[in-house]
Design a protein around this nucleic acid. Structure first.
Lengths: 124, 124
DNA sequence: CTTGACCTTGACGTCGACGTCAAGGATACG
DNA sequence: CGTATCCTTGACGTCGACGTCAAGGTCAAG
C-alpha cells in the first residue's frame, strides 16, 4: 500500500511516516517510480512505534529494539546486554510515569467531584 | 524559605520555579530586597504542579485549576462548567495514556523476557 | 570592607516529533 | 490529451518547559 493509505489506516500523518523512515525505524519497499510501498508488517511496525513513542521512548531507542520485537507468535531476536539494561530502565520509567498519571487523575477527579452540581454559576 | 531551599526540597530547578511564577502558577511573597519568600503552601503547590505537568497538562490549564485544588481537608473552590469539561477531557486523556503506557510496558517486558539468560553474546 | 554564596531580571538556546510550505514527478480517469 | 490526485525530496517553522549564559544587587561571615 502507498503512504496515503497507510496514513489513514494507522492515524499517523504522511510526514510522520516519512520521519520514521528517516530515523531508521522503517524500510518500506519502493516502486520503480520511487513511491513507497508498505507491507502489512510495516503497518504493524508503525503501530508498535506509536505505542513506544507514546510511552516516551525516543526514536533512536526504538530503532534499536524494533528488530527484537515479538513478531506474531515468535520472539525474533533477543537483544544484547546493554540494550536490555536500557529497556529495563525504560520499563521502570514507564511504571513511575503510570503512578504519576494515576495521582494526577485522582487529583483531577477530586476537583471534578467538588464542582457545582448542575446549574453552575458564572465564572471568569 | 528562599528559592534555593525550595528548589532542593522539591527537586525542581530554580529556573523552573521562576518559570512557574511567570506563568501565573505561583505568587510567592517577596522580601524588602525583592527576594522570593516561599511558604509551605507554596511548596505543596509546586508538588501539585509537578504532578500535573508530568501528566501532560499545560501551564495555562494548571493555572486555571490550581485555585480549585483540594487544600488540606477542604475543597476550596469548585470550577466553572467550562473548566470542568476541560478537566474531564484531561482525565480521559490520562486514562488513555495510562493504557498506552501499560501496553508499551508489556511490549518491553516481552522483549526483555526473550533476552539471552546470562552470558550475552556480543552485539552491534 | 571584602569575599563568596545567594539572589534578581532579561534574553537567547535546546530538543524532539513532527507541521507546513515549495517545487516539482507519477498515476488514474474520462 | 488534460487534469486532478497522489507521490517525491528538501528545508524551514513550531511549541513548551525549561537550560544557560550575562550583568548585576544582597547578605552573612571573617
Amino acid at each position: 500500500m502507498r503512504i496515503g493509505e497507510l496514513s489513514a489506516r494507522v492515524g499517523a500523518s504522511e510526514r510522520a511516516l516519512r520521519y520514521y523512515e528517516q530515523q531508521g525505524l522503517l524500510r518500506p519497499a519502493r516502486t520503480d517510480a520511487g513511491h513507497r510501498d508498505y507491507s502489512e508488517e510495516d503497518e504493524r511496525t508503525v503501530r508498535r512505534i506509536q505505542t513506544l513513542l507514546a510511552a516516551g521512548l525516543g526514536t533512536s531507542v526504538i530503532a534499536e529494539l524494533l528488530p527484537c520485537t515479538p513478531d506474531e507468535g515468535g520472539i525474533v531476536a533477543p537483544a544484547c546486554a546493554e540494550l536490555v539494561d536500557d529497556l529495563r530502565a525504560e520499563r521502570d520509567r514507564i511504571d513511575a510515569a503510570i503512578a504519576e498519571l494515576a495521582r494526577a487523575r485522582d487529583l483531577l477527579d477530586a476537583i471534578i467531584a467538588a464542582a457545582p452540581p448542575a446549574g453552575a454559576p458564572a465564572c471568569a
